[in-house]
């Protein structure tokens, strides 16, 4: 199962909705959080934009790639756009597989590829108040 979605809503704590399968012994979760510094300056939030339509399409393609290459049983991903405060999640990815090894490898590959091809950008930041 693959479920990919880009949203301007808060995604912290999102857990996906998987139909359980007793053959899946591993669940790897990655949460990418907004750090409090950007280019050496303290910030309060980052602003993300995306190419609507293409970003979704490329994320789905990547998800299919991860599932096919690494024997992942299910992959769910939520990417947040818009203004994201420091400490909140920009992305949450959940992958289930038989064993942890393929889950870790697939997660690493998925995130590396996402940062090369998925048209989503950090386009600005909101400075932290002194």
């Amino acid at each position: 199962m693959i479920s990919v979605h880009i949203t301007s809503e808060k995604i912290d704590g999102w857990r996906g909705e998987f139909p359980g399968d007793p053959s899946e012994g591993s669940e790897v979760i990655f949460t990418g959080l907004v750090r409090d510094k950007e280019n050496g300056r303290r910030i309060a939030a980052l602003v993300y934009e995306h190419y609507e339509g293409m970003a979704q399409k490329e994320l789905e393609k990547l998800a299919r790639g991860a599932v096919d290459r690494f024997a992942i049983a299910s992959l769910c991903c939520r990417h947040r756009i818009g203004t994201i405060p420091v400490g909140e999640a920009a992305i949450v990815v959940i992958m289930r597989s038989s064993h942890r090894k393929e889950g870790f490898a697939a997660m690493s590959w998925f995130m590396d590829e996402l940062k090369k091809v998925v048209p989503i950008w950090k386009v600005g930041s909101i400075e932290a108040e002194e």
């Binding site: 995306h50 293409m54 399409k57 940062k115 998925v118 048209p119 989503i120």
Partner: peptide, 26 residues
């Protein structure tokens, strides 16, 4: 048209091209 083409792909009337600077999602 929302995909990455090869450099040899020929554009057609009405196509949508996008300039994609280095991405920074995640």
């Amino acid at each position: 048209n929302m995909s990455y083409p090869s450099r040899e792909t020929v554009v057609r009337e009405g196509d949508e091209v996008a300039i994609i600077p280095p991405v920074s999602g995640g």
